[in-house]
Design a protein around this nucleic acid. Structure first.
Lengths: 352, 352
DNA sequence: TGATGTCGAGACCACGTTGTCTCACCGTGT
DNA sequence: ACACGGTGAGACAACGTGGTCTCGACATCA
């Protein structure tokens, strides 16, 4: 016996303010006031409203609220990272999430996989959902498509890489100085033939790290040897092959500077396969879990991801709170962690 | 000279359909049709609308659309995990994100840190934003607070642990069988004194793994020794201390079964500190990066996280597509990966 | 007692969009 | 020439909520 309107509303939808109002015998606006904690409501009436809301299982509709509301805030921000599954991105997400949570703000995430098209698509998809702001680790070389959105009121903060053709707050690691420190550290152990293994040259951080590497060599008056510079290593396997190739040179490097996580791990595998892990020194950029458990432990230039995420989130919320000051780029220092691999001294030449 | 309405609309907000409509000289509804790709619009008119939208930098407001729209879908789902920064959760997020993306659905995330209150708060915060569905790795022991939401149309899928007092789809690993396999593997190497190191007993997966451990012993007619069972290990440091304690017993275990990632790594550190890593066998539950790079490599029961995430996402979207069939629990098998630590044979007793 | 001020609840509408309905217009058939 | 069906654009209202304004009630004071 299909009924149009039984006593209890059994239609699939959710109860609305209007229904709560009807049950409590008040106007919808009063329910709105109670839900928003407006203090001018009679306590007794408020109690009746809360009771009715409870009874119906009422939950406010934030999308409707956001639509009507003056400030148009959704209490939601978006975060676009390279890959939510990699430890760097994951740690960044978690830090931002924690700070957002303190303000009752939730985080929408998207992985870009270094694809500029995806960056654009996802950024716009987030904007279509009217996020209050965006934290972006950009994949593309042109963020001008965001100019209109920024002007329309979406706050933007960039992390790890600067935006192009767009003026926004940025938080980055000191990649160049970090690379200089890494290479000088290897030099202190006596090394002069130091190879550089890096990922795509198109990624700004990779370029900055190469720049630091070259600068450190120059400071020490060591002529850079192009054969020792391997770039465009995208996978762990690529890094393994590059390291093998380097070590097979007639005059192989005595130390490696690997400019990214996956590359560090790949090179580390290659050295072990060649039984050279205790003879060739290595410093990697980016720390990674269990780096201290390998033999030798892997010395790294660690980025302070927690600080980066915290600064980015704070920059975003400061803007959301109305800060109009000029945009700023914050540079976070990196830190050398010595664990063994970077302290292997220059020994006998590996090849006659 | 403050102007109310200059030629170009310069107010901070975003252009709306109405403004696009005015510029294109059509009705708002026509803009709506163009934006939604309705085919009955005159191509010439559609082009004019698109041009106007482009010119104004128009972006549709999905929250408004969702409000008016019949199905009330936001093309957004929520995902509550233990901690977005841990590799297990991060991989899960990424898998779900990938499948959601194929449908133009974005993912809101939240980390629970095993806190039931946070689970409830975040789940409701997501529901207030009218997510279409939720993927939850529950922290609490009672999900009845979601019954009303489920009835109201929010699809729910649980991962890794079953919900309590709520009927919903579930995707879990075969924890018990995995533990049985791990312990039998250690027995095949001759071990009988096998310790169990696990995290909080309150977490269902932990209980299931302990259950499997006990069952395997029973099958082999080995009496379980309560002194060899260490539970409630929350941190890596806790696991280190537990392993130290076990190895200091007058009759220490010859093999360890560690029921969780952090515990495995802690135990591994402890064994290495005691120089026992090549004498005491160990199998861990959950694979982790670089497990193969340690010496010895750490043998593990690996969960198929990608399959779990995929099945969970598919279950969710099947429901969203209207599937009304009874809820189902899908169990995903685990896989033994041998890397050395689990194959260390029973040798001389460690203590006289 | 009457004028005034205060305060809290409700009426009304708009936020940006889309479902529904209307209606003008076109081509077709007789 | 007229009726007709089909087609496509626009008018209108409503989704759930909150900003604004109104208004009645009650307290205060001259």
């Amino acid at each position: 016996m299909p009924q149009g309107e039984p006593g209890q509303s059994r239609r699939p939808g959710r109860p609305t303010m209007r229904e709560v109002a009807r049950l409590a015998g008040v106007a919808p606006k009063t329910v709105s006031r109670v839900v928003n904690g407006v203090s001018t409501v009679d306590p007794q009436m408020a109690a009746r409203v809360r009771e009715a809301a409870e009874k119906l299982g009422y939950r406010p509709n934030l999308t409707a609220s956001n639509l009507r509301r003056g400030d148009g805030r959704t209490a939601t921000i978006g975060m676009l990272v390279e890959d939510a599954a990699n430890p760097y991105s994951a740690a960044l997400i978690r830090t931002v999430e924690n700070i957002a949570r303190e303000r009752g703000v939730l985080v929408l995430i998207g992985s870009l996989d270094e694809d500029p098209d995806r960056e654009r698509e996802l950024a716009l998809a987030l904007i279509d959902r009217r996020v209050d702001g965006l934290v972006i680790v950009p994949a593309g070389r042109d963020q001008s498509y965001l100019i209109a959105e920024q002007r329309a009121g979406t706050c933007l903060v960039f992390v790890d890489r600067e935006p192009k053709l767009l003026d926004a707050d940025v938080v980055v690691s000191d990649n160049r100085q970090g690379a200089v420190t890494a290479v000088r550290h290897l030099m202190e152990a006596g090394h002069r033939r130091i190879a550089f293994l890096g990922d795509q040259a198109s990624i700004p951080t990779a370029a900055q790290r190469l720049d630091g590497y070259l600068h450190a060599l120059e400071l020490a008056q060591v002529t850079a040897d192009r054969t020792l510079i391997q770039q465009g290593l995208v996978t762990e396997q690529g890094a393994i092959e590059a390291a093998r190739h380097l070590m097979a040179l007639s005059d192989p490097p005595t130390a490696l500077f690997t400019s990214q996580n996956l590359v560090t791990i790949g090179a580390s595998r290659a050295l072990r396969d060649l039984a050279l892990e205790n003879r060739v020194a290595m410093v990697g950029f980016d720390d990674f879990p269990l780096a201290d458990m390998l033999r030798p432990g892997i010395s790294v230039m660690a980025q302070d991801i927690e600080a980066i995420g915290r600064l980015a989130a704070h920059a975003l919320f400061r803007r959301l709170d109305g800060d109009q000051s000029p945009t700023a780029t914050t540079t976070v220092p990196t830190r050398l962690i010595t664990r063994g691999s970077g302290e292997i001294p220059l020994g006998e030449p590996l090849r006659a």
